[in-house]
Amino acid sequence: MLGYLIQTVLITNEIMLISFGIINAIAYALNDYKLKAIARSFASDIIVSLLLLWLTYAILYSNSFIYSSLDGSFINSTRYSCPESVSYDIFSCIATAFLAGNNYIYYNGRYEPTLADSVNSFLFEMYGLYIAVSAIGDLTINLFVVQVDLYYIMKPIISSLSELIDLLYFSLLSIYIQYTVILYITTISPLLLSIGVILRSIYPLRAIGSVIISAVIAFSIIMSSLYILDLYIYNEQSFILTQNISYYANSADTIYSYIGSNSPTAASYLQAYVESLSNEIYSYMNQIYSYIADVIFQVFVMPTINLIISLSAFRYLSKLLGGFDINLYRLGA
């Protein structure tokens, strides 16, 4: 697609050069200042479209200085991890590899799982914990005249875990939605960019062309490149719980063994054990909440910031290239 884009921009530039000559000649012949201004705008458009082509080529061309300035192992691992259809576009490749790539990606000297894999493994851990805690909560202990229903002790934890699991499922869905959006934008962006350049070379459609070009730059290049920032923040985090789920499964076994022993001292042991276990689970929840906060930050907050920056860039670029003044606050009105 990159080859077609370059051809389109270059041929359009040739057309614009000749059109500039024709309009200029007529403007001089008629000594018409309005036509001269149109001719001048053609000249500036040629320079702008060549600059855009330079920018696109510098970013997308696999042998460009931007590629060589980045770590080779990082680039190779992202290329291996991102879908083949976007592997030519460095920023989209990094963004898709970071979100839900096929493989581990290499950065800062080590291989790391993708965001989707991390959230997925965290979800499995959470689900395991939920099953273990639910198993403990299902126990009813009959101690002589007293009946202890552990469900009431575990209820807040079970309901919290259930809600957090729902949130993690939604996070995973959000990651895949972002991945699909980037993939779609990257696939159609060369075509949209060439359509934008062509429309921009036709004087009455200049503003529409500018809006399309600025939308492509903002959402295909700027939004994808902002995911690199997310990647470096993500670098500090890994969602691995310190205590194994099997510990809680063993706890359920221990409680069963206390119940089965029928010893007179079993009741006091059981009470102490259940208390210490619930305390531990509550403190363990703090770690889970901090991880959930990280997941929300990376899956919802950072992409929202990316989107706001991209929309601002879209608006600014549209004005800069001579398009409409897109007022985002009035779009809903």
Binding site: L50, W54, Y57, S64, F65, Y67, S69
Partner: peptide
């Protein structure tokens, strides 16, 4: 212009 773009973006 195409040659200029190629030469200025090529890392080699």
């Amino acid at each position: 212009a195409a040659h200029l773009i190629l030469n200025t973006t090529n890392s080699s």
